[in-house]
Nucleic acid binder design. Structure first.
Length: 246
DNA sequence: AACCTTCGCAACCGCAAGGAT
DNA sequence: CATCCTTGCGGTTGCGAAGGT
């Protein structure tokens, strides 16, 4: 499976990668590491553009990448994270070790989206599909969707900047929530190694998260609340954000 | 068997952010 | 400060495989 091979006007090869090209790219990166994608193809003896090499490495060749079918647990996670983060595939991928953003995005677009729709759930809002929607308060994903298509931001910020900021906050909040979940769990149960590490470092982590929140707060305070409201990711932080403007 | 549709996924494209100069 | 370059991201496309008629 793949695209047909062709050459652009500069003689740069496009389309499907061969096993030999893969081998050359892996050998080069194993020897010299990943740096300067622009110069890498020439140095590695590949007639490809740097962008193509980067994509091939990150989405396919990089060690530890999990390929193949998504487990039901992974699918649940994607749906859960999508409801929180919207189409921020890179941010979702960060929450799912060994899966690439491209893989997650493909699986969402080709499978999960349709499955949700079939079961009567709007994949954008994650709410039951209604004949006419007159919701007064849109869900995060819905608000995010509209923000990217119909809002224009002033010079103080851009959708991309907000998304980046929001993704950072989201991931840190998730980490904090995880710590709290572990901490407030009153049921005596088996604690795995990962959780032990989390518990032992919780104070430092909360401190670090606090610092990040402070940085975000300072950045956000330079924008208007209306601008921030354009982005769904702040939906969950309404109270916190309003505090920034008091 | 032939044709059509849908699925799965690798790869491409355009754009924005951020660093270097 | 302006411009250029590199990197990263999200949307989209192309194409073989699989399934349906």
């Amino acid at each position: 499976m793949g695209r047909t091979t062709w050459f652009d006007v500069d003689g740069i090869k496009r389309g499907e990668w061969t096993a030999e090209e893969d081998r050359m790219l892996i050998a080069y990166i194993n020897k010299y590491g990943v740096r300067d994608w622009g110069a890498l193809p020439k140095r590695a003896g590949l007639h490809r553009c740097g962008k193509s090499c980067r994509l091939r490495w990150l989405n396919y060749l990089k060690p530890g990448i999990k390929k193949g079918k998504f487990t039901p647990q992974e699918e649940d996670d994607i749906i859960k994270f999508h409801s929180l983060l919207g189409n921020r595939w890179a941010a979702i991928a960060k929450q799912m070790p060994n899966r690439t953003d491209n893989d997650i995005k493909n699986h969402w677009n080709s499978c999960l989206k349709k499955r949700l729709r079939r079961s009567g759930i709007d994949p954008m809002t994650h709410e039951p599909i209604k004949a006419t929607s007159s919701s007064t308060r849109l869900s995060p994903a819905r608000r995010h969707s509209s923000s990217t298509t119909s809002f224009s931001l002033s010079s103080t910020g851009s959708v991309r900047l907000l998304n980046k900021l929001a993704a950072g906050i989201s991931s840190r909040k998730l980490a904090l929530d995880r710590i709290r979940t572990v901490m407030i769990s009153s049921e005596p149960r088996e604690v795995d190694e990962e959780e032990k590490t989390m518990i032992s470092s919780r104070k430092e982590e909360e401190k670090v998260i606090g610092c990040f929140m402070e940085i975000d707060k300072n950045l956000i305070s330079t924008m208007s609340l209306d601008e921030l409201a354009c982005d769904s990711s702040y939906y969950y932080y309404d109270d916190w954000l309003r505090g920034c403007f008091q």
